[in-house]
Design a protein around this nucleic acid. Sequence first.
DNA 1: CTGAAAGCGCTTACAG
DNA 2: CTGAAAGCGCTTACAG
Lengths: 345, 345
Amino acid sequence: MKGIRQLAEHLDISIGTVSRALNGKPDVNEDTRRRVLAAAEELGYVANQSGRSLRQGVTNVIGLMLEVSRETVENSDDFFLGVTDGLQSVFSRHKLDLVMLPCPDDEDPHEYLKRMVARRLVDALIISATRRTDRRIELLEKARIPFVALGRSASGGSYTWMDLDFEGVAARGVDRLVAKGHRRIAVAAPSSDINLGYIFLDSYRQALKRHGIPFDPALIIRVKSSEQGGYQAGHELLMIEERPTAIILIHELMAIGLYRRLAEAGIVPGRDLAVVGFREEPRTHFLQPSLTSFRMSLRDLGAQLGETLLATMPAYADHYPQGARNRIWPLELVPGESDAFTLTG
Amino acid sequence: MKGIRQLAEHLDISIGTVSRALNGKPDVNEDTRRRVLAAAEELGYVANQSGRSLRQGVTNVIGLMLEVSRETVENSDDFFLGVTDGLQSVFSRHKLDLVMLPCPDDEDPHEYLKRMVARRLVDALIISATRRTDRRIELLEKARIPFVALGRSASGGSYTWMDLDFEGVAARGVDRLVAKGHRRIAVAAPSSDINLGYIFLDSYRQALKRHGIPFDPALIIRVKSSEQGGYQAGHELLMIEERPTAIILIHELMAIGLYRRLAEAGIVPGRDLAVVGFREEPRTHFLQPSLTSFRMSLRDLGAQLGETLLATMPAYADHYPQGARNRIWPLELVPGESDAFTLTG
DNA sequence: CTGAAAGCGCTTACAG
DNA sequence: CTGAAAGCGCTTACAG
């Protein structure tokens, strides 16, 4: 079966009628429609997407750009797979399909995105891992393609974004630790230019200030956002002269590496050092002593992200009257044993 | 900037010449080409992919179908991200782009694939996680779309596949353990219909036979291919009446859960129980005692997979004269401490 | 070296 | 309710 023309010939009707029948248009004789549907099924006909796209001006595909850094691969980040699920639950309502666009390690993300936009194989895009300065945002604004950034950035104009509540995590982490008597609170922050690092540290500093604790740059440990990074953070923490009594982590997997390094040094979280982890994750469940961390639903985040994106698209905005508001996604503190002690003296 | 027509008008030349200039055809005046390129850059023109695809009959996009099962999400499988890297290194040579097609959890993979094929947004496909009976293979054969299966199946005709050497892992695992005096060797096998389970178990039984050891079905522990599954396997192993002295795992993450369960029971791998893990992985490196496992390069596998796929595509087959051969990907044994003892008595 | 024209496979006003 | 025709944005023989 080649195209609609062959199908129409086979049925001995016009291609227009075939098209209308297949697309569920109302002005088609029910008997005709049945015949068309049956023949299409039998001959395995389905409309060529390029033909449809060209005529209709839309692809009905949404792209999620991924940066497959070596770091991501090694840590096997579950984040995107979880979010994907939520996205699809929303997109499927409108017969939109999601494709993931993995930017190769050795290609500049900006160039990659440019090419993807140029090809127009998606109607809209989601970008993530936004950096402090992120040219992708201007690129997308200029291309006038609907998009939502998962993560804030200092770049661009008034684009739509969603982001995790990094400031809330930092603030609550500090508050909690200070309440338990800590004053030397370290932070494992990302070594990259990723924007969440700035937000997190700003909030951390403000929280300290609120409590009248002077900021000590020596307590900012720059490591990769990974299990390895957590190990490294543990290593560096042990070498700080006046050793911190607590540490707040900025990535879920850091806790695993940190625990390992601490164990090597005979240091017990929740007894010798207070540890506040980041996102609760199946793998962090097994840590002993249990980790104080923050809970969120990846799927719900994905669904919200999907709705926000659709709200930016003229064709779907009507369904999402809340509009394309920027949102900070809350995380709920889940107390564990890793910081369950009060500092005395 | 709308389309090639506007660009041509702006330059006051024909759209044919613009197209030829942009596509690097030789029969264009160099001066004309420069002008066209400059104007395209300035006005931000790029060819609409639907128009190109419709005319040329190809999309220049390759799809990698993913099944985002809850299991995959929770285990944050790094497998595909690693393979992706290798795939792209090959595809980029031909200006082909890779998109990942995540099949939603709640959708039938067969229906999903059918839709993706129908839309024709890719020129070729890679499917994975093949099951013993896998209708996707017949679907793709019938649709006459080039594809390679990552994983074997009993379905379909003479399609092209690549697969890990599960039989080799099972055979070498058994040989190694028997040489160390073991005769009751358990296997943690997948509870699903995934084809690799059949291959693995066949090879396991053959290896036992070779050594004259009777097969005991009680030693086949069916669990999920995950960290949780490994924990569960440990749990069930402890309840087997005549306890096995060794276990071979069929998934990389199982080792982590298994170690955890064993630790709870005070059983030390490499002393009380011999453990042979599956694929070596950053996370399995940290296990104590070190795990005997099998090494392979995800990136190399991806590159080979990419070349195999291109060899099945008429437009690229010339570049890959080795043809679309089926391949079993070898894994190299990396001895660890987890099975480093000899059974006496 | 360039232009005019055909046509890829669809959908959709429009006419009847 | 159906058909004939236009046209989405390209690329590519073909003619000059």
